[in-house]
């Protein structure tokens, strides 16, 4: 199996005024291409911090992060932006859609920064929204959509430039169980299509769907188990 993510002794410290807080205390993790992985753990255990580092939204304080063998720690801000644009799709708990823009315009943003021409953009946006079942909501603004619909727009956006990896930080945290289940089945499908998917969650029923389960506690990985056998057995 081909390795896509490797973390070695990754630490992250936050400095707020006089306060020095170590949110990650030495994470070692390997993720292979096509993995479907859930990260669980109590609130404050460092899950989001880990996800931000994986998503190149933030840099580790120390340790090594290799993405496809490339050392991320030393990349420039432009290179990091390009990784976020093309190689990693991010789905947030709070959706993080542009509030003034329509569904189509939101999905279009990563394509704009990838300099895709307008004709191609329009085609891709239509396809992406159809793929998440929102072909009829193209011109709706976030305020005119339900939480589940907003998260589907966010998923469409995360797929815009066909990234290899999808990172989701509590994607169902703001949704009722029914819309949550619809989102999870969407991740299942993406997994079947070959994407590498990492989902942070509180919800063990989501973890049921994934093939690997990583448990975090106090900035460390407590257990790292392969669940794929469970389903086979």
């Amino acid at each position: 199996m081909q390795e896509i993510i490797r973390l070695k002794q990754v630490k992250k410290a936050y400095q707020t005024g006089e306060m020095h807080f170590e949110a990650l205390k030495g994470i070692n993790l390997v993720v292979n291409k096509g993995d479907y992985l859930a990260v669980v753990g109590p609130s404050g255990s460092g899950k989001s911090t880990l996800m931000n580092i994986l998503g190149c939204l933030d840099l580790a304080t120390s340790g090594e992060y290799r993405l496809d063998g490339e050392l991320v720690n030393t990349l420039s801000s432009n290179q990091l932006a390009d990784i976020r644009n093309k190689r990693i799709g991010f789905v947030f708990q709070a959706f993080n859609l542009l509030p003034y823009a329509t569904a189509a315009e939101n999905v279009e943003v990563p394509l704009l920064f990838a300099h895709v021409n307008s004709k191609e953009r329009r085609k891709r946006v239509t396809e992406l929204l159809a793929r998440v079942g929102l072909a009829d909501k193209m011109n709706n603004k976030p305020t005119e959509m339900s939480g589940g619909e907003m998260q589907r727009v966010a998923i469409a956006r995360s797929l815009a430039n066909e990234p290899e990896i999808i990172l989701a930080d509590e994607p169902t945290g703001n949704l009722d169980s029914k819309s949550g289940a619809a989102i999870v089945s969407m991740f299942d499908e993406l997994h079947k299509a070959g994407k590498t998917i990492l989902i942070i969650t509180h919800d063990m029923s989501i973890a049921e769907h994934t093939e690997r389960l990583v448990t975090m506690k106090d900035g460390l990985i407590e257990s790292n188990g392969d669940l794929s056998g469970r389903r086979v057995g």
């Binding site: 939204l57 432009n78 390009d82 991010f90 993080n96 542009l98 509030p99 920064f113 990838a114 956006r157």
Partner: peptide
């Protein structure tokens, strides 16, 4: 700020 953060998260370089 949030809007700027969102754009950066999906690939906007600082120069943009």
């Amino acid at each position: 700020t949030r809007e700027i953060g969102i754009k950066m998260a999906v690939g906007a370089r600082r120069s943009y």
